[in-house]
Amino acid sequence: MVKQTYQVTADTIGKRFGNVVLFRNIHFSLVTGQSMAITGPNGSGKSTLLSITAKLATPDRGKVVYQRDQKIIGRRELFSHIGMVSPDIMPYRELTAIENIRFAFNTFTPAEDHVHDRMEALGLYSHRHKPVAQYSTGMLQRLKLLVATLGTPGILFLDEPGSNLDTTGKDIIYTYLDQVRPDIILCMATNESTEAGLCERSIYLGTDHS
């Protein structure tokens, strides 16, 4: 299989809420194989910048451009190339893990064995027929990671991926990220130094409230 090369370029991104400037003039460019951590204190706009980069939010200034093999990817096509874990993205609580996966991948169904292996690796296999409403916060975070990574996306966005996870859960994620990092663009918002250390670059968002 020919490996696809992705590029994401953020050009002078700025965002404000009312009179509060969250950040401005953010500029970066990442290609497949590169990773970046967005760090900073609470309220500095890490999650907002991640959402803007994933085109799930709009910036007040600047733009984000995606390319695959040097061809621009539109916003709507983009979603089939990215995986994202965020506190703002929840699977359906009334559905089971398996039902959520079947819904999320209704056009492209990952091989059954692959799904089972990944569920087993994340410790979710025995809970696959439970409604998500009965999951603990840690199990929910594992499920979000499973859904985000199951389609082997070319670009992965993680917002505090280790939150609510025990040591085993964190180890599973860090090992997984080590394996896939050379083949994807990884962009992560985090306050954990261990997680930020998994990325080769980082952006620090200060508190500029001018």
Binding site: M84, S86, D88, I89, M90, N106
Partner: peptide, 14 residues
């Protein structure tokens, strides 16, 4: 209300 709108946006076309 249940924060599933982004999940839906990521996995289904408008």
């Amino acid at each position: 209300e249940e924060s599933t709108a982004l999940f839906l946006r990521l996995h289904s076309s408008a």
